[in-house]
Simulated scan of single mutants.
Amino acid sequence: MSTPPNAPKRTPAVLVISAVLVLEALCLLAFAGWYGYELATSTPLSMGGAVFTLVFAVALAVWLLAVGHFFFRGYRWTRSAAVVWQLFVVIIAVPTLQAGLVLAGLAMLLPAAAVLVLLFTKPVLAHTSRLTDGAKTF
């Protein structure tokens, strides 16, 4: 399989960001599976709210898988999606750390911080600065 001539070069930073995004999506899918199991085996206070939460978690995981895939391919819109998602993860990680769940908090905070830093490096910006036609834009 040959790569197209205008395909972006994948640096280690791009690989790390893509891997973290996909791993976060898989963790979110695992949470949705656990949540669905708990929903099926117990009675929630609000069935509508619980089902909405389950559907939302699955939809968010699928979206995050798409972001990781298209980031790997070099699409520029994925930078903003990745930044927003990592900021949400930081917003969840900080109270988790404050609640005394240090391992869980660090497991969320450290990959999110690494992605946030790597997203603004020159190689990553160069990787994601193309449109579908190959023209460089910011």
Rank of each mutant, 00 (worst) to 15 (best):
S2Y: 01
T3H: 08
P4I: 02
A7D: 08
K9G: 00
T11F: 07
A13F: 02
L15W: 13
L15F: 09
L15C: 10
I17Y: 04
S18Q: 10
A19G: 15
L23K: 13
L26N: 11
C27H: 09
L29W: 01
F31R: 07
F31G: 01
A32Q: 08
Y35V: 13
Y35Q: 15
Y37P: 14
S46N: 12
S46P: 11
M47D: 13
G49W: 02
V51I: 14
T53I: 05
T53G: 15
L54H: 06
V55K: 03
A57Y: 01
A57C: 06
V58K: 00
A59W: 05
A66E: 02
F70D: 08
F72N: 07
Y75Q: 08
T78N: 11
A81D: 00
A82V: 06
W85G: 04
Q86A: 09
L87T: 03
L87Y: 12
F88E: 11
V90S: 12
I92V: 15
I92G: 15
V94I: 11
T96G: 06
Q98I: 13
A99F: 11
G100F: 13
G100M: 12
A104C: 03
L106D: 01
M108R: 09
P111D: 08
P111M: 13
V115C: 04
L118F: 10
L119K: 02
K122S: 14
A126S: 09
H127D: 08
T128R: 00
T128D: 01
T132D: 09
G134E: 04
F138N: 10
F138M: 08
